[in-house]
Structures are given as C-alpha cells and as structure tokens.
Design a protein around this nucleic acid. Sequence first.
RNA 1: CGGAACAUAGCGCAGCCUGGUAGCGCAUCUGCUUUGGGAGCAGAGGGUCGGGGGUUCGAAUCCCUCUGUUCCGACCA
Length: 583
Amino acid sequence: MRASQFLIATLKESPSDAVVTSHQLMLRAGMIRKLASGLYTWLPFGLRTLRKVEKIVREEMDAAGALELLMPAVQPGELWEESGRWFEYGGELMRIKDRHNRDFCIGPTHEEVITDLARNELNSYRQLPVNFYQVQTKFRDETRPRFGVMRAREFLMKDAYSFHANEESLNDTYERMHQAYTNIFTRLGLDFRPVNADTGSIGGAVSHEFHVLASSGEDDIAFSNQSSYAANVELAEAVAPSTERPTASQELSEVSTPDQHSIEDVSQFLNLSAQQVLKTLIVEGELSEKEQEQGKKPALVALVLRGDHELNELKAEKLAGIANPLTFAQEEDIVAALGCKPGSIGPCQMSIEIIVDRSAAVVADFACGANKDGVHLTGANWGRDANIGRIEDVRNVVEGDASPDGEGTLEIKRGIEVGHIFQLGDKYSKALNATVLDENGKQKTMLMGCYGIGVSRVVAAAIEQNFDDRGILWPQALAPFQVTIVLIDAHKSEEVVERGEALYQSLLALGYDVLLDDRDKKTSPGVKFADSELMGTPHRVVISSRGLKSGLVEYKARQDQKNDAIEVPCDDIFELVKSKLAH
RNA sequence: CGGAACAUAGCGCAGCCUGGUAGCGCAUCUGCUUUGGGAGCAGAGGGUCGGGGGUUCGAAUCCCUCUGUUCCGACCA
C-alpha cells in the first residue's frame, strides 16, 4: 500500500474520552473512530488487524474440524421465548419490533438460532458430532460501555456451537476447542492463560475462559507460580490452612470501642493486625418455597472471616442454608436478632447459625465485635468463647495462598477475557427440543458445547500488552503492515524513488503487507518516523539520498528500544528484510 | 442502577466566576521557502458555544429543563 493512496488518520493528541492505552492508541493510530457510545467504525488501518485475527481464528477452527456458517444478526423473539431467555436476559438484550409489531432482538449470542437450525437439519446420531461456527457482529446493550472496542456494545465475535450424541463426544470436542484456542492465542503472539471459570447465566457445567494478561484487565486471575493451574478469583478455592490453630494464650476481655466499626478502625484502635480481627457478616438464610409462600422471614446466618480477607459472594450463596442470590441482612433485622448494630457483631454468644471461613477457623486470641454497640472483645478463642459451627470456604483467594492443585502458591494478575468455552449440556437442546434418533431408533436430546472469541477485543488486548511511549508494538502476526519503507528526498532523487519502488514490489511479490511512505515533501521525515512508530509497524526501512550517496539504506526493528538503526548496503536490504519477516 | 463531572471549529483546550464584537494550539486550504525526528514565513476557510425554555436592553457566560458523553461505585459490619 502506498501511503499517498491510503487513509493515514493519525492524531497527535488523543480524544479526552479515551482512558485506557489501547483505546487511546487505536484512536491516535487511526484504527477506529467512535460513532456513538460503544459503537465504532473500523478505519482501513484498523480493519487490517481485525482481518488478521479473523484469518487465524478461521484457519484454526477449520483445522479443528469446525464448519463455518453465517446466521442473521436479527433474531425472532419467539425463539428466545422458547428458550426462556426472552424473560431472563436483562437490558443487555436489545429488543426491537418490526413493522408488523412482532418482537425481534439484535443477537448478543446465537444459541437459540443454531439450536433451531440443528433441530431442523440434524436427524440422526450418525450426523454427529458437528461443530458450526461463524464470525459475526454481536450487540449487547452494556450498561456502561467503556475502554473503546474492549467493552463496546457492538463487537465482532467468533462463536461456535457443537452438537453431540453423548458426553464423551462433547468432552472430546471441548478438548479440541481448548487446544484450538491455545493454538490461536499462541499464533497471535499473546501472553494468555486458560482459566477455570464460572459458567454464569449461560448455564452448563465445564467452562474455561481464555485471558490475555494485562494490567488494564477487568477480571482478577489467580494462577499458580509453578503449575498450569489458573482460575478466576471468583472461583479459585482457598484451601484449608495446613497449620493447626494455636492454643489460646489470652483471656477474653471487653474493650470499649466507641465509633470503631470497620476492620481498619478496629485493628488500628486495638493496635492489632487485621489478621487478628475477625469480621462477622450477617446474611439471610434460605427459605423453602413453602416458607416463601407463607411470607416467612428468613433466618439470619453469620459469616465469619479474617479481617484481611474478602467475602466471596459466589461461594457463600452456593452454600446450603444461605439465600441465593446472597442477601445481606437489613440493619433493623440485625438489631432485632442480635441486639446491636452492624459494626459490633462477633461470633461469641451468637444466637444464630455461624459459618466460619477456613482461615478464620485457625485464628487464636482474636478480636471481634461483642454484640454490644461500641464494644469489642479481645483474646477470644474458638471453642472456649465461641461456637465454631460449620467451617466452609467463603473468601476470595489472595496472593501467596497455596495453589489448590498443591503445586506452588498463587499469583493474581488482571486479565482481559478474550475467549470462553463451555459445555452447555442440554440446556438449549432440551428447551428447543433438538433431538436425533440414536442407534436404537429412539429420540435423544443432543448435548451442546459453545465456544466464543471476542475478535475485536483481541485487537485491543494485543495493544494493551504491546506498546511503548511512542505507540503500538504489533506482534508480527497482527501488524496491519509488516514493513514500512520511508522515502526521504523523493522529490529530489530519482534513485530514492526507484530503490524504494523496487524493494516495495519485491516484498509485495512475496505476499507481505508493505507500506511505502511516499507522501510528498509536505510531509516531513519526522512525521513519517513518528507515524510509523505510532502505527507500530515491526520493521522499517529508510531510503534517503544522503544514505544512497554511500550506497546505504537503513533498517530498524520497532521493538528495539534503542534509537540506533542498522545501515546496510542497499543491495542487501531485500534479503535482510526477508530474513527478518521469515520468523 | 447510585454518585460526580463535562458539553465552545475535525482534535485538544481557554473564555463563564464578575453578561457587552467567540479565541488559542494542532489539523485543513493557498503562496513562497524548507527536507533525517511531529518544518518556517505570509495569508485564508471553518462555530446556530449540545437542544429547548427563562431572566435581561443584551446570554457561550446567570436560572430551569431535556439530551449526549465521560468518570467513580455497585464488598460491608
């Protein structure tokens, strides 16, 4: 591509609404422009990278035996009513009506449509397994779109759906997809982790998220420093401490702690570390349907954690006897049941059920609320002063915790979710009655898996992981242009033009993406250099009349932090660039 | 959804407090000069100051309202 024929839409300053690096750089390098909140136009330069991600995704999906198709972005509401999600899905589902006043939505995902297709087209177990995929625009009406294309409302996604006659087949395809995803992100040149994940609202059992590690990520990922164990912090198990609880060495005593409510206040006031202070959270207990109908009030349950630990609501609400979704008790109910306000609650002399976190259960001589306003206890001990009740895992893991697989300790980093694979089971096939005939001629509900990659988000994630103060540092596989040839003094020197043209043509002939910066003399060399760095082209050749006088041209790799370029004889430059591009 | 802020040329901003001819930088266009790190000089174009309403002789500026955008939060004993 010749720069003079291309849209180079670089900006010196970034629009004020861009806060994360990838968003700023995508705007500044001329990759995208915002149309409205969460809606972006991909300019020619940005589209090149988007297409490269798509290409690698397609190649690996095809290689893994998946079949590409393309479904409509607009979907009939009836299908969503059939699956039940018309009512379950919240405001993220963009609902529209056509001119006949019929309900439609703009697809945030395509389980319903593909399952409808499968029930019509698949009749026999002998047609299974199959795995269909598409690369397509999705729409989710996010409450708070942000970070550019990283959390946009309209985005490009590769989604795949597999159909199976049995669990074994589903597992098999799931593993193949796991491997295909690993291949994809490896080829893209990204630092990523597959992590065990919560299945969320989509339902089903087994699930992995693929996260690109970057400080701007929205999820906390816990991973072992010694093994391949990685999990979303929401799901990572906090293993029981291997140490025994020390024996009590202090006497229980009451301390007046006026206006000291938070763990921070109390530990400072008592001059104790937060680890020695236990916090007690009061949540609502579970009610049976019958009790709910009778309008009974739920019993309260006390959750006891170490002061420096955070409650994991997901873990808590899964416990028997606790309301799901987790509901914190109202202040008046707490006062009625315990006789004091939140902020002074503790497990000693507790009248309601107590669930103690594994780590909190091995603390001795702890401080806690005294169940009297403005009073705390110190030197408290389980058994002697408080009933330990049940012990459960109800906290988030923290750095340094033992890895649940027994190997190494946990580190926590932010991750950007770029891929997600699920074993859906029969959730949708059952709802939509998608069956095939089995070996015995009997109707059998198919099992399903689904596998997504946020194609547009991958582009942003790649930038979050690869940039410096001058701009983007594209991994080879994603670079919109692999080589930039900068011409200097082209208007004065025929030889500059000829040499540049020759190199340009021979690299093009090999199929490389080359940008020939032939912009006229109004574009100064400094602008060309700055643009090539902002745009992140991995390799740059500079051809100038000054260099050609000694028969030399200049080569520089974008990754080289040092500013010094290599001067090479101009007859050697083609071979040099070719060898650099080869790997 | 809760809280906070912002909206002035394509982009970044000033002007508003204290009402009186709408400005700066970048970008754009023309001419001349210039060519190894975001060029120089001279000139030019570009705005219903987000929309509506009000106060006033007069509103970008003060008041009300709507819309849009952004940020923070949705973990707490």
